[in-house]
Simulated scan of single mutants.
Amino acid sequence: MRKFKFFINFEKEEKWLHEMAKQGYQLEDKSFGYKFLSAEPEDTTIKVDYRVFKKQEDFIDYCTLFEDSGWKHISGKKSSGAQYFKKVDENSEEDIFSDNISKAGKYKRLSSMFVQMAFTFLPLLVALMTTDVIDLAAIVNPKLLYLTPGLWEKTGISFWMAFLFETPFALFRGIMWAFIPVMMTLYLIYSVKANILYQKSKKA
């Protein structure tokens, strides 16, 4: 079974995964949505960290460190960011983090990742604007999305025929032009939200 959800708050995500395990759905993978396997209902503890590694050896050492402490790495890759751990030793601690500062650190790393993703779009946006592929002025003047010569000087039936014919193309053009600015804005909003969670977690 595969489910699609989006979380910035890791605590809410952990709670949801806990409820899924109690219903008999064990997390197998988190890449294209959440992939679950049917299993016996289990009252288990799942914790999430956020880390990206440059070297596979560092990633293996990271997983081994937690597994030696009673936590099994159940999903996540070297460059995936989100890392999922399941408590397998009853005698281990109830959290994978020893203090609030280290626990809050995952939100700081997540916030930085969103900022980086937002700015990776910037060179592409500038290039498309300077080559007139994208005209952001269409945000305040939607008429620019219509490329039919003399469209706005037409009247009567000829205007409506031309207008209705091009409108689907104009809408598609508008969606394409807006995609990059919208994605950059969303990533920056997510970064701010993650940073707020970082500040709250640090003080908890």
Rank of each mutant, 00 (worst) to 15 (best):
Met129Tyr: 11
Leu151Trp: 11
Asp95Lys: 07
Leu124Met: 13
Gln116Phe: 13
Met129Ala: 12
Glu94Pro: 12
Met117Asp: 10
Tyr107Gly: 00
Lys77Ile: 12
Val126Glu: 05
Ile139Gln: 00
Val115Cys: 09
Val88Phe: 15
Ser92Phe: 04
Lys77Met: 14
Ser112Gly: 04
Phe121Met: 00
Phe85Ser: 04
Asn141Val: 03
Val126Asp: 04
Thr155Ile: 12
Asn141Gly: 01
Lys106Trp: 05
Lys108Ile: 00
Leu125Met: 15
Ala118Trp: 05
Thr155Gly: 11
Ile157Arg: 10
Pro142Ser: 02
Thr130Tyr: 13
Ser111Cys: 01
Asn100Asp: 13
Leu110Asp: 01
Thr155Gln: 15
Met113Cys: 09
Lys78Arg: 04
Thr130Ile: 15
Ile96Lys: 00
Leu144His: 10
Tyr146Pro: 08
Arg109Ser: 05
Gly105Glu: 15
Thr131His: 07
Gln116Val: 13
Tyr84His: 02
Leu145Arg: 08
Thr131Arg: 08
Phe119Pro: 07
Lys77Gln: 12
Phe97Val: 00
Asn100Ser: 11
Val133Leu: 13
Ala82Lys: 10
Gly81Ala: 08
Lys78Trp: 00
Gly76Ala: 05
Tyr107His: 01
Gly156Tyr: 07
Asn91Leu: 06
Val88Asn: 06
Phe114Ser: 04
Glu153Cys: 01
Ala137Asn: 12
Leu145Lys: 07
Leu110Ile: 03
Lys154Ala: 14
Asp99Tyr: 02
Thr148Ala: 10
Thr148Met: 07
Phe114Leu: 08
Val115Lys: 11
Phe114His: 14
Met129Val: 12
Gly150Pro: 04
Ser80Ala: 13
Lys154Tyr: 10
Thr155Trp: 03
Gln83Asn: 10
Ser92Pro: 07
Gln83Leu: 15
Pro149Tyr: 02
Leu147Pro: 01
Pro123Glu: 00
Glu90Cys: 03
Val133Ala: 06
Thr148Glu: 14
Met113Gln: 14
Ile134His: 08
Lys143Gly: 05
Leu151Asp: 10
Ser111Gly: 07
Lys78Gln: 05
Ile139Ala: 11
